[in-house]
Amino acid sequence: SSQSQGISSSSTSTMPNSSQSSHSSSGTLSSLETVSTQELYSIPEDQEPEDQEPEEPTPAPWARLWALQDGFANLECVNDNYWFGRDKSCEYCFDEPLLKRTDKYRTYSKKHFRIFREVGPKNSYIAYIEDHSGNGTFVNTELVGKGKRRPLNNNSEIALSLSRNKVFVFFDLTVDDQSVYPKALRDEYIMSKTLGSGACGEVKLAFERKTCKKVAIKIISKRKFAIGSAREADPALNVETEIEILKKLNHPCIIKIKNFFDAEDYYIVLELMEGGELFDKVVGNKRLKEATCKLYFYQMLLAVQYLHENGIIHRDLKPENVLLSSQEEDCLIKITDFGHSKILGETSLMRTLCGTPTYLAPEVLVSVGTAGYNRAVDCWSLGVILFICLSGYPPFSEHRTQVSLKDQITSGKYNFIPEVWAEVSEKALDLVKKLLVVDPKARFTTEEALRHPWLQDEDMKRKFQDLLSEENESTALPQVLAQPSTSRKRPREGEAEGAETTKRPAVCAAVL
């Protein structure tokens, strides 16, 4: 046999249950609850290399294929790409003598399909299967379609040439079993990697079954959420508030809700932002270029202005709740996480202390139980975000031990490091100062900020419009641009040419 590394010779191994799959997660993409704000000051410096380099560890398999027929071997997927077919160049070659004697062998292509993985959001991997055969590759009886790919989820059954000719079961060793999710959700989405997690739940990458488009699904544990919100009269209202707010909003710089499922837990389906959180971008770069800050901040102002015009105060604006559309420097941003939002009543007064301390406005800290506050709290938070983006460190921090965090904020005395700000323009610093004003009545509004000289930049605004146009074009394009080929190089076993392929839609398939 010419099988590559990772293939075992026996096809009769006992199949494990899916609970053996491991679970991976990374930083929070968007969480309903406010958790302790991640610290920006503690960015690790590059460490000196050791005298002796450690040995390379043996790579762990990321997936496993269990053979369902004699003549096929099990495969431990270690590499990122595997070709399957009769050709000797394939990493998994159909060359077992037992297999060659079967009637089905002649229906398999020289290069029938490939399984591979690509880097997705949060640097996690996504597994795909890609059909290159004349007679078809099927996943859970659905045709992939020649020249098309679809994501592979845990426990997928792979069939060759005929939908009933099941050859492998695919085990993704990095994700959960699909069966743990409600059927209504599974009918519409293929669940994938964990993108982030918080005290009350997690955010998962998923794929729409009909279109193969990526989405983010925010899962909120009702049990954990009820415990964490025990002081509230009705904890469920917080989730329902977020859903109702998101459904009503329609702005290019605000995250869109696509679906909602109320089962044992809450499942909020949101558009996916491939670039992750602004927080991670700031930490990764230490600070952002001023031109990049301007492009992002302009969009934040437009989003918050839209919220305020619609009578909504976000109340928890922070870099973790600003998501980026891509890994590119120039990209769209979207505001997310409306769990603490407040729809303005007639009095415009709110007395609930919520939000993240580092970003809270002075009037929030001094008015607990005594007075109210209004939309100006969001403008203060925007000032803190702009400060961080321009400088790479927070204006107020618990680690300045000589003054408490509350006193720093209520006095408006931010930590100004001259040598850092020497590289920032006077106009940018002036806008920061106009937003970090203790008196909410004297603080800049979103309208005033948008009129500030720093943002009178036609090149930046043109760039934003171009990015918007690109997004609109990409969302308007159909996901499947061509029909699967019906040509046949070899006959199917026991049926006429093209008899099955043309009847089945290529579900969740995307043209390369």
Rank of each mutant, 00 (worst) to 15 (best):
I333W: 01
R315G: 04
W421Y: 06
S325W: 12
Q483C: 03
P484F: 00
K413L: 12
P505S: 13
N310M: 15
L295D: 06
F464R: 02
N415G: 07
S381K: 00
L307A: 13
Y298I: 15
R315C: 03
A291F: 07
S469Y: 12
L272Q: 12
L270T: 10
K294W: 06
P491V: 04
E419K: 07
N250W: 04
A496C: 10
Q305D: 05
H340N: 14
M273G: 06
F279T: 06
S474F: 11
P362A: 00
L324W: 02
V322S: 03
K433Y: 02
L450E: 13
T292V: 09
R375I: 09
S487A: 09
E495C: 07
V511Y: 07
E320N: 13
A376S: 08
C508K: 07
V304Q: 02
G275P: 14
S325G: 13
S411I: 05
K256N: 09
E329P: 10
V437T: 15
C354I: 10
K334N: 14
R488L: 05
L302S: 08
L272V: 08
S348N: 15
V368T: 02
A476G: 04
K286L: 08
A510I: 13
P484V: 04
C331F: 07
Y306W: 04
N250C: 07
E244I: 15
K318F: 01
P395G: 00
K247R: 09
Y359V: 03
D337F: 00
Q479Y: 13
D265L: 07
V368P: 03
S485Y: 11
F279H: 06
A428S: 12
A428R: 13
S348I: 14
L323Y: 06
K406T: 09
P362H: 03
K489R: 12
Y266L: 14
R462F: 12
M300P: 04
R351G: 13
N259Y: 11
S411E: 11
T356P: 00
L323D: 01
L429F: 14
P478Y: 15
F464G: 01
C293D: 01
Y266M: 13
P478Q: 02
K248T: 12
V304G: 09
A361M: 05
L323Q: 02
E290K: 11
C389W: 03
L249G: 06
E473Q: 13
T358D: 04
L302A: 03
I335S: 01
H251Q: 13
A482N: 14
A376E: 14
K258D: 06
C293S: 09
L295H: 13
L344N: 15
Y267E: 11
K247N: 08
E493G: 08
G355S: 01
E328W: 15
A303Y: 01
R488S: 14
H251V: 02
V438G: 08
P357D: 06
L288T: 07
L477P: 15
Q465R: 14
K294Q: 15
L467V: 00
G355R: 03
L323W: 00
E448P: 04
L349Y: 08
Q479R: 11
I343P: 08
S425A: 15
I245L: 02
P440L: 03
Y373M: 03
C331V: 12
V384R: 14
K248E: 07
L365Y: 14
K286P: 10
E500P: 08
P478R: 03
D265C: 15
F260D: 08
K248S: 13
T501N: 02
A482D: 07
A482F: 07
L436K: 00
L301V: 11
V403A: 12
E329Y: 12
L307E: 06
S487P: 04
A371K: 09
L307Q: 11
E290R: 14
C389R: 03
A510G: 12
E448R: 03
E274C: 13
L405C: 06
A509G: 14
F416N: 06
I313S: 04
G311C: 11
S404R: 15
E320G: 01
Y296V: 09
K463T: 14
I268V: 13
A476E: 00
V420L: 07
L360W: 14
D316F: 00
Y306E: 03
C331G: 10
T475S: 14
S367K: 00
W421F: 13
L512I: 04
E264C: 06
S487R: 14
L301Q: 06
L481H: 01
T475H: 03
H314D: 04
E264D: 11
D459E: 11
Y266Q: 13
R492C: 09
K247I: 14
F261H: 10
S404F: 09
V424A: 10
E423G: 00
D330S: 05
F387L: 01
T501S: 14
I343K: 14
A442S: 11
E447Q: 05
S348T: 11
L360G: 14
L450G: 13
G345E: 03
S348M: 09
A510V: 06
Y306P: 00
T401V: 09
N321L: 04
K427T: 08
N472A: 00
N285W: 14
T358W: 15
C253Q: 08
L390R: 02
S381E: 12
A303I: 04
V283E: 04
T502D: 02
F338T: 00
E447S: 08
V283S: 10
W421L: 08
R462P: 00
H251Y: 08
E426A: 03
S381F: 00
T347N: 09
T352A: 03
K281F: 10
I268T: 12
G355E: 05
T502G: 15
L249A: 09
D316E: 02
K413C: 01
P319M: 09
K434I: 00
T356A: 07
T502A: 11
T410A: 04
R504C: 10
D316G: 00
R492D: 06
D330W: 12
V420A: 00
Q479T: 08
A449Q: 09
L302P: 01
E363F: 01
E458F: 14
E495I: 14
D430S: 02
V511F: 12
V283N: 05
D378Y: 01
P252D: 08
Y266E: 13
L386Q: 06
P252T: 12
